[in-house]
């Protein structure tokens, strides 16, 4: 935990943040991530239970 007097204060840094609306590419990233995540979730649970059944 070395001391660092040059370290800026978090509050001051956060107050400088300017509004940035979500870009279409960010929305696309979030949507695809969630869609792929949910589809894979079903797929992985199903294949996991088929290929690696509990108790074997």
């Amino acid at each position: 935990m070395p001391e660092d007097n040059a370290r800026p204060r978090i509050g001051a840094e956060l107050s400088k943040i300017e509004a940035e609306p979500l870009l279409p590419i960010e929305k696309k990233l979030l949507a695809w991530s969630l869609i792929v995540g949910l589809v894979l979730l079903g797929l992985l649970v199903w294949t996991g239970n088929s290929a690696l059944p509990v108790g074997h």
Binding site: L29, L30, S33, L34, V36, G37, L38, L40, L41, L44, V45, G48
Partner: peptide
């Protein structure tokens, strides 16, 4: 399998 899910769902 569990961590693939964590990456995709958590982060977004």
């Amino acid at each position: 399998a569990a961590i693939i899910e964590a990456y995709l769902i958590y982060w977004a």
